[in-house]
Design a protein around this nucleic acid. Structure first.
Lengths: 203, 203
DNA sequence: AATTACTTCACCCCTTTGGGTGATTTTGCT
DNA sequence: AGCAAAATCACCCAAAGGGGTGAAGTAATT
């Protein structure tokens, strides 16, 4: 089954580049471009829509594969994987900050290539779980601390509930809810529930 | 430099389990537990707080490592990596749906272990970018399509703007905004802007 | 016991929101 | 030109929201 993914391979050593490209084609990824240095890679990225990039770290030039990763992260939404000889702790600590979807150590095992593409793409486009916002996170943007009860009200409000619904669900009077909301808005420095919701969702 | 990460290794073959554990300890991950089958892994997970899990796929029991991965995803917030002999397309297609942070093919290269832990953890806890919601995503939950102008109004509403602010920013009358919102609420099947915001934020 | 903060509740009054009805203008397509 | 959909606008009225004032009860702390 041929894939229609467009893949860029950035590798300064032509023999290794050929190896990688051959391996990709053999694994039914026929649409492969090669770039042999940083500038060529930048140019190709600006002219094509790639779905996945393989990066060597040492490009024998002023700019490394890590610089290229940073460029990709700042300008494109493309998953990438390093293929490199480096396995030392310092390099790992540096490259992990660029969030590669994979890291293959040379000499590479051919089986790894399709695996890292499939799993890397899936992870890169993983739907992001919505998590209940914690009271600690909210307190980072408030002028004074939110109380536990105020937090209860906030969660209901974030759920899109109106004041009557919230009062029913928390077994209190609607006046209590209004009272809490007044305090919440002061602490969040907002004027309406919509604005409160927006501010909290953007933490 | 010793790491204080707690790691669980789930592997039915004791010799391979020993290999993995030895490799972890050698790479300064001293806090390692082993589980030799699914039930033992479940028990350990419920009694300990692990930071990372290595999973074999074939556990020689009714439940596979994939079942365990699903259990972890549903009940815990822990990154995991498969270590397995399987490299076939079908297995990859199946396991990628569980979002492993890595996938190591046996026989494994010892260098890979610390790499996948470091990069896997970093990726797992990567701060999530807030993106402007697309009109296509919204249209997945509407009863009929949102128009371009309606979409403009939605974005402002999501920003916490009130009707007067929106009318000023879009250079139209407040009645136009109310009119658009009426239509938007019908399409989203909601009764208030708070509910609309909540529904859209939870796509 | 006194004090403080939180929780709960009431009420006043004004503003904003939202459902409804209706109309006109603009735009894109046939 | 004719038509449909979208965009724009007005107005009515009820419901909901939100700022303000004040009070009582509860829990924790000194």
């Amino acid at each position: 089954m041929k894939s229609n993914l467009k893949i860029l391979v950035v590798e300064d050593d032509p023999i290794i580049a050929d190896d990688i490209c051959a391996c990709l084609i053999e694994n039914e990824y026929p649409s492969v471009n090669c770039a042999f240095n940083y500038d060529e890679a930048i140019a190709q990225l600006s002219q094509n829509q790639f779905d996945f990039v393989f990066l060597d770290i040492n490009l024998n030039s002023k700019h490394s594969g890590i610089n290229l990763a940073i460029h990709i992260n700042e300008n494109y939404l493309i998953p990438f994987c390093y293929i490199t000889s480096y396995a030392d702790v310092n390099t790992i600590q540096e490259v992990k900050k660029t969030f590669p979807v994979g890291y293959i150590v040379k000499p590479f095992n051919q089986k790894e290539i399709p695996i890292v593409i499939e799993i890397g793409l899936e992870n890169f486009y993983k739907p992001q779980l919505k998590q209940t916002i914690s009271i600690q996170k909210i307190n980072k943007i408030t002028t004074s601390e939110i109380s536990q009860r105020e937090y209860d009200v906030i969660l209901k409000m974030l759920d899109g509930k109106n004041n009557t619904e919230i009062s029913n669900e928390l077994f209190v009077s609607i006046n209590t809810i209004k009272s809490h909301l007044k305090n919440i808005f002061v602490k969040l420095n907002v004027r309406s529930r919509s604005e409160a919701i927006s501010v909290i969702n953007n933490i």
